[in-house]
Amino acid sequence: MWQTCTIAQIVEQTPSIKSYFLRLSKPFTYMAGQHADVRLTAPDGYVAMRSYSIASAPSASNVIELAIERLPDGEVSPFFHDVAALGDEIELRGPIGGHFLWPERPTAPILLIGAGSGVVPLMAMLRHRRDLTQTVPTALLLSSRTERDVLFGDELLLLETADPNFELALAITRESPKRTTDFGRRIDSAMVTEVIGRLPRTPEHVFVCGSNPFVNIAADGALMAGLDASTIKTERYGG
């Protein structure tokens, strides 16, 4: 079940988030939206385990990407940021999760809403959609403190330019955004309604990921916009 993987690459994505590319010793197939569990063991046998969404697309590669945000008082995320180095071995098990999953052959529009590192499973979905050249209309509403804090920002902007069926809306909470299609405030219901309006039809799948308070506001916004509760899937990072 548990396997040892090796840190093959570390990329500083934002001031607080780094990507860790892990080479699996026992490659597995996974679906966009799933996560892996990571296990750290101290010399005295003490064990710490946490879940991390898989950011990479489910291609055939034996390297998966995790993107980990450093929480100042945390136990595991500061270890990754401050201690873990290239070539280190990490124990991992996965893939896990059978709910927060990109639909198999989507036709009806899809709305993705994330905050901070909550974009990780949504990124796996968008990369998967791109790899399969799916044309299902998709919008991503992504909240971050500043533009520098937008995880995968460059890739998302490129994707939006290249794909007429993909809409990106950033909600930047601590600066004024440069693009007129972005928002310079925290997420609210009006914002969710406006982004839904940029899709050609009512979305039938909504994926929301982030901290619990953020997810509650986003999911309530989708409900107030008239979407059915059964279409809304949430992943809460447990804060």
């Binding site: 040892t4 063991t41 101290a42 005295d44 710490a48 385990m49 270890f79 124990e91």
Partner: peptide, 22 residues
Amino acid sequence: MVTRGFFGRNSGGNEADRIPPG
């Protein structure tokens, strides 16, 4: 497998026998 450089916060303290594995 011991993870290089990881020592943990060891939050259990006196309560360790009340905390299931992991």
